[in-house]
Design a protein around this nucleic acid. Structure first.
Lengths: 219, 219
DNA sequence: TCGATATATATACAGTGTATATTTGACGAG
DNA sequence: CTCGTCAAATATACACTGTATATATATCGA
């Protein structure tokens, strides 16, 4: 009898498998180390095989990004619109912390994957249903996403673990000229003593925006 | 007599000239087209010559970034701290529009160029002098910069010219399934009719943050 | 005038994405 | 069972990348 095609050398490659392996490499080793050859090796396949399933590397990256967006929590639940948008923003930040390479690519790429469209649609819908005009909803979403992207990207460029971040600050301190940059110097000293709490600081800016928004305060 | 060293083939290359040429290429043709060989050709020099003046490509990029930061307006003038920070944020946005490749790199790189340190020092100083604690000043600066980076990066990924942006929206409209994504569909329709005003929308989010901040609203 | 030194160049290498041509294997029809 | 067909995997090759290393050369101080 012929061997089942399942365990065969053939037919085993799918775009889903490629995306999964690519995400693993990007998450664990960094997006800059992700090459088509390396990805192929991880899949026990040659580089060109993958071109039967993804158009090119850019296409692969778009598919990876749409997967990341699929991890965003859709603002579909009941509750005040502020809570729904806050939950979505929190889930975005967590997704970006899981996939540190994603926000940079996501914000500099026009993506039209289905999850991305679903996310935008649901977020706008949440605001529209709260009484925002389409224009106001667009502005509100823009302000919230600007904070989410901007904050998280700054956070990612930071040694997150408390030990490491204090050590890094202590390492940079002597390089900061106390006379030229007195405030920066003092701020770094304060940083070394203090605690870093990413989510609290994230919410600080987010709440400034959310509490300022209302269905009739724009245009 | 020997020819003046000015017009000679030698001694004509400096890191400043390299940075200048690199900025021109990145601004006009895109950062992704900037290769060491291409840059060398623009300078009538071989690629390796430049390695006498910059350590490597990453070093060159850092130098380019510090130049971009030098275009930020330092919050040194008199006036309310909100105005100073708004002027700085506006100047940051304008610098990013001039150098569209910069924010992505700037936010994902730890830079310690002198202009960068001067900017951070002056911004913190502005807030400290307004009565903020060091911790509160750090949080405030973080919120403002998150918005500035996040908003501008979204804006850059957008067809800025009114004609083009309406045309792009009209182009995407038929690809948006009206039943699956009703809000997104309607929002795009509204977008086509409306006007896009980058700076007004930027100020919308910025003012939400600035008007929420005060020297004693964060621990 | 003569090293010494700094700077420009030449060459080479390992790595990249991917176009093109070829081989391979599974499957349906006779 | 034996083909032909067709999709998928592979092999090869090309232009391009950053840059290590070795060499050549022009300028300046003694």
């Amino acid at each position: 009898m012929p061997t089942s095609s399942k365990s065969d050398k053939r037919r085993t490659l799918t775009s889903a498998k490629i995306i999964e392996a690519a995400l693993t490499i990007a998450d664990t080793q960094g997006i800059e180390t992700l090459s088509m050859r390396k990805l192929a090796t991880a899949l026990n396949v040659t580089a060109m095989s993958m071109y039967n399933h993804v158009a090119n590397k850019d296409d692969l990256l778009s598919l990876m990004l749409d997967h990341v967006v699929s991890e965003f929590e859709l603002p579909n639940k009941d509750g005040p619109w502020q809570d729904m948008l806050r939950r979505r923003a929190h889930s975005m930040r967590r997704a970006f912390l899981r996939h540190p390479w994603a926000p940079t690519l996501l914000i500099s790429t026009i993506t039209n994957g289905s999850h991305t469209m679903q996310d935008t649609n649901a977020t706008l819908g949440c605001l529209i249903n709260a009484g925002f005009s389409y224009a106001a909803a667009d502005w509100a979403r823009n302000a919230i996403d600007s904070h989410t992207f901007g904050y998280t990207m700054q956070e990612l460029n930071f040694p997150v673990e408390p030990d490491k971040y204090k050590a890094a600050a202590a390492h940079y301190l002597p390089e900061i000229d106390k006379d030229k940059y007195p405030y920066l110097h003092s701020a770094t000293e304060v940083l070394i003593k203090g605690e870093y709490d990413g989510i609290t600081q994230f919410d600080f800016g987010l709440d400034l925006i959310l509490s300022g928004l209302s269905p009739d305060n724009s245009q």
